[in-house]
Design a protein around this nucleic acid. Structure first.
Length: 308
DNA sequence: GCCCAGGTCTCCG
DNA sequence: CGGAGACCTGGG
């Protein structure tokens, strides 16, 4: 067993990054990584090998400490690139900050979100199932369901005498009996998950095609999957396929957006999406993430909730 | 026992 | 299109 450690210095990534805030913001990409005393670990696929990556962040200087365990040698840079992708560290977040500052309605949003980054999926498929699972559900319940599916149905790896699992691939997921899937608490979403998986399997290079499509085209395509409506579609596009124009509109984002921009009038989710597309464009994904987190932490959520 | 959870599906005008 | 109901299931 090989163990290696390296550091990603604060000035290597572009702008602020807060690992703990990012992990605990309830993003639908996948459940948070396993957390032991501030060290987050997950099995990552790097250079054709499955390795256990463990990352933490220095309190004083925001450096990221990366360790990994592996049975074969891998390239540090490959793992580094993967971590940069997952936590969007190549993206210059100061552009988002400037946008918040330039828009009066969003001025208060920054202080609750400093360092919050997109938490993107290692496997688009996991994000699709995870997002379908999140609909009409609670954060606590859908993360537990996805975790349980991983543990019970995903391939197992042993590192340091500890068991770790990856989320099942499409082919394996498709073989899970529906009754078993339901035992993980996904309820009526089980058929959505299986039907959508079959659809994905039936098409060659499904994921690659969507990665290459424009936001608009990919939206039309992904919403055809069962259990995927407008909100889940945008979650998938944002977290699984890296499309920043997505603005997933759930009840909260609807309430917050109308509160900030439409004087609290009743407005349809579709109109809110169109508004975001025109007003926020490439910043839509981050603004949605920030607004949701802002509402949760600032007390705005409780304030708006009491009106309904 | 009732209501709700980061919605979607189906049916209907 | 846009609105109204039903919907697995665990927790308050």
């Amino acid at each position: 067993m090989i163990k290696n450690t390296f550091t990603i210095k604060y000035d290597e990534y572009k702008g602020d990054f807060d690992l703990t805030l990012t992990m605990n913001s309830g993003q639908t990409s996948q459940p948070p990584w396993t957390n032991v005393e501030g060290r987050y670990s997950e099995v990552l696929f790097v250079d054709g090998e499955y390795v256990l990556a463990e990352i933490s962040q220095e309190f004083l200087n925001d450096d990221i400490i990366v360790s990994y365990y592996s049975n074969h040698e891998i390239n540090n840079k490959s793992l580094r690139d993967k971590i940069f992708y997952i936590f969007d560290l190549d993206y210059d977040i100061t552009g988002v900050y400037d946008f918040l500052e330039d828009n009066q309605e969003l001025n208060d949003v920054y202080k609750f979100n400093r360092g919050l980054r997109l938490y993107k999926a290692q496997y688009p498929f996991e994000s699709i199932i995870s997002s379908i699972c999140s609909a009409n559900n609670s954060i606590k319940r859908w993360t537990k369901s996805v975790d349980d599916i991983k543990t019970s149905c995903g391939r197992e790896f042993i590192f340091n005498n500890e068991s770790h699992h990856i989320f099942p691939r499409e082919e394996d997921f498709f073989e899970i009996p529906e009754d078993k899937l339901k035992s993980f608490g996904v309820g009526y979403r089980s058929s959505y998950m299986l039907n959508s998986t079959g659809r994905i399997l039936s098409e060659d290079n499904f994921h690659e095609k969507i990665f290459e499509m424009s936001y608009e085209d990919s939206f039309k395509k992904i919403i055809e999957l069962e259990g995927v409506g407008p909100k889940v579609a945008d979650c998938i596009l944002l977290y699984a396929y890296n499309k920043r124009e997505a603005y997933p509109v759930d009840v909260w984002i609807n309430r917050i957006t109308t509160y900030l921009y439409f004087n609290g009038q009743k407005i349809s989710n579709k109109k809110i999406m169109e508004f975001a597309r025109e007003s926020f464009d490439e910043y839509s994904g981050y603004i949605q993430l920030y607004l949701f987190n802002y509402a949760r932490l600032s007390g705005l959520m409780d304030k708006i909730k009491s009106r309904h």
